[in-house]
Design a protein around this nucleic acid. Structure first.
Length: 401
DNA sequence: AACCCAGTCAACCGCAGTAGG
DNA sequence: GCCTACTGCGGTTGACTGGGT
């Protein structure tokens, strides 16, 4: 219990005592749930009006579900749906959930978000990879993996989200004429402006189909409507990421994947593929934009296309993680995405196959960690990268502190 | 048993909207 | 119209707890 001297008065803060609750309940019974500040002015309780109201609303009000009562699946579903619809309007959402307060909903949501963050941060290592798995148990603490295998999104409040680079939604990348090499070609931007309207929740709640088809998001008018877009938030880099060199989109969010292409001077550039910018055929690109319907040995696994189209990005991530972990596979996007353009990379799935013969054919290293895989590559793999490309450590728009 | 960590919950803080003087 | 107090909301923090090591 904390007390604060406020002039002649002593204000009490911290946990409420049962006696205080009784006084408050009695006050509400007599005077109604209003004039909270008069509780203090009448000398009933040494608490601020705000504190009294909060205690009543969150704890003492009749018909509240008792604390510890977990959200039912129906409640969860409703919260998720309403949050997608309304945003963080906890009070509004809570009003649709009998017995729940805005605080309940808020806490529920933040817990859920943490769970998601952890799920996204958790590396998907093949079984039997012991040390490597332990060493990378938290991607965010592994700078080398960050440099090659992940991007981070940070909310204005500073909460970071780490996403394997292969999962980087392509719309996070913006075409920039300054980087155009020639008509039909473009280099990957090194200083991509993050679309500030895309905070973590935006990304995670996207419908996969929309991501590919480009129907739902990110027209210029959308940016205008969001108000925040491309303005201060951008300058403050509320979204921080590391680019995934083979994924680029145009300004109007036609999701386009451009595969690295060798140039005569040895540099890598990215070729525009007409017909991949949002038409129906683009749905077929789901696996192609880093969504892991990936080849592994002779198998494909991942989420059926029909299901992908119905899921949002978050659902998809969790689903794919689960399915891949169940089959002891590693998601290919966990690995350095730019290397997927290399022929050297093609043998990587073998490392993660559960078929020993396939494993053997691809194995030239004891460990299966992404780092060890990278170090196992021939040096010339990196020669094919864009020479002007800054070091991975410089890819960040800003570094998490 | 001690420690660590994640999850949960309660409460605070700051800000914005509103009503009343 | 301006100021002030009140109220409500959303973000954040810190205490507590339980499970795992």
């Amino acid at each position: 219990m904390k007390t604060v001297q406020n002039g002649d008065e002593v204000l009490r803060k911290g946990p409420w005592m049962p006696e205080e609750d009784e006084i408050l309940v009695e006050y509400v019974r007599q005077c109604g749930a209003r004039d909270w500040s008069s509780i203090r002015s009448k000398g009933l309780l040494p608490r601020t009006g705000k504190s009294c109201r909060l205690r009543w609303v969150n704890k003492l009000k009749p018909d509240l579900k008792r604390s510890g009562c977990k959200f039912s699946p129906e409640e969860e579903k409703l919260v998720v749906e309403m949050q997608a619809k309304l945003g963080n309007k906890w009070a509004k959402i809570a009003s649709c959930l009998p017995g729940r307060t805005d605080n309940d909903v808020k806490n529920f949501w933040s817990t859920r978000q943490k769970r998601i963050l952890r799920a996204l941060q958790r590396p998907k290592m093949p079984s039997g990879s012991t040390d490597a798995a332990a060493d990378t148990s938290d991607l965010s603490k592994d700078p080398s993996l960050n440099d090659f295998g992940a991007f981070q999104v940070q909310s204005p409040s500073g909460t970071g989200l780490l996403v394997p680079s292969g999962f980087v939604p392509p719309f996070l990348f913006e075409e920039d004429s300054a980087f155009r090499e020639a008509p039909g070609h473009m280099r990957l931007r090194h200083s991509v402006q993050p679309f500030s309207s895309l905070d973590v929740d935006d990304v995670l709640s996207l419908k996969l189909q929309d991501m590919v088809a480009g129907d739902a998001h990110f027209t210029d008018s959308d940016f205008t409507q969001t108000g925040r877009a491309l303005t201060d938030d951008v300058r403050h880099s509320s979204v921080m990421y590391q680019h995934s060199p083979h994924m680029v989109t145009t300004r109007n969010a036609r999701s386009v994947k451009r595969r690295p292409r060798s140039r005569r001077d040895g540099r890598t550039c990215f070729e525009h593929h007409p017909g991949t910018d949002g038409g129906p055929e683009s749905v077929q690109m789901l696996p192609d934009i880093g969504i892991p319907l990936i080849q592994n040995g002779n198998r494909e696994f991942g989420v059926p296309l029909s299901e992908q189209q119905n899921n949002n990005y978050l659902d998809f991530l969790l689903h794919s993680e689960t399915s891949c972990m169940q089959s002891n596979q590693i998601l290919s996007p966990e690995l350095p995405s730019f290397l997927t353009s290399s022929h050297q990379w093609e043998k990587l799935p073998m490392l993660y196959s559960d078929d020993p013969s396939i494993q053997e054919s691809g194995k030239d290293s004891d460990s299966c960690s992404p780092d060890s895989v990278i170090s196992g590559f021939a040096a010339d793999v990196f020669d094919s990268l864009e020479p002007l490309c800054p070091a991975p450590s410089e890819w960040w728009v800003a570094r998490l502190t």
